[in-house]
Every structure is written in C-alpha cells, then in structure tokens.
C-alpha cells in the first residue's frame, strides 16, 4: 500500500514540476518541449546516479513519467558499455527501451489507422 502511495506522490510531484515549467515560462513552451526536456533531464540525472534512488523509492511513480524513459536509456547505455565496450554506448540505450519504442510505434500506428479524430 505504501508503495502505491509513494508512486502517487512522487509521480504527481514530477508532473507538478512540468506544470510549473509550462505556466511560469514563455508561452512558446509546448508539450513537445516538456517531453524532450524530461527525457534528456532523465538521462542526465540517471547518469550521475540521482534517478535510481527515486525509482527504488517510488517504482512506477518514477518510471512512468518520461524522465523514467531517459533513465532507462542512460542505464542501458552504461550497462552495455560495461559488457561490450564502446559499441555498447551506441546500442545499449536503444536496446533497453526497445519494448517501449516498438509499442509506441505499433500501437500508435494501429490506433491512428483504426480511429478518426472526433472533436
């Protein structure tokens, strides 16, 4: 139960930071800017070891926000470098996020073809 509460609070707070970024900065900040910022931010935090503790604490509360996607990219790259050397820097990130990316492309395509915009 505590795990779920932590996921709620941490996940919610991560989103609040994004809301503040959108409301307090220039109006030209779009959702695309926020998403790109969160992924690269996640990569950077993860690479200096700051994101893993958050994942240990909050589980999905830290992996579901897009910064978790960045974390996965960074950890993939680092682990692959340990195993394969320099080549791993190129393959590791994509390998560890492959399921998410493939799901996004396949489901995205399927639903875009199946449905039409309504409003």
């Amino acid at each position: 139960m505590l795990k779920i509460l932590l996921a709620f609070v941490v996940g919610g707070l991560i989103c609040v930071i994004g809301q503040l970024l959108m409301d307090l900065t220039r109006p030209s900040i779009t959702p695309a800017h926020i998403l790109v910022g969160y992924v690269t931010g996640g990569v950077l935090l993860s690479s200096v070891g700051l994101y893993q503790p958050l994942v240990d604490l909050a589980g999905a509360g830290a992996t579901i926000p897009l910064s978790g996607f960045g974390h996965s990219l960074a950890q993939g790259a680092i682990k692959a470098v340990e195993q394969k050397g320099l080549l791993g820097a190129f393959s590791g990130g994509i390998e560890s996020t492959a399921v998410g990316v493939a799901a996004a492309v396949i489901f995205g395509y399927a639903f875009a073809v199946l449905f039409n915009p309504r409003s």
């Binding site: 109006p27 959702p31 915009p117």
Partner: peptide, 19 residues
C-alpha cells in the same frame, strides 16, 4: 475550427491546455 487548429496549433486529439 478543425482546419485552422491543425494549421496553426495542435492536432485536436492532443491533450493540451488552451491558454
């Protein structure tokens, strides 16, 4: 509305808040 939104702003089904 729907031709202008896609040309000037976001796709209508994208979850964005209008200022």
């Amino acid at each position: 509305h729907l031709t202008a939104e896609r040309q000037f702003r976001f796709p209508v089904e994208q979850g964005v808040q209008r200022p």
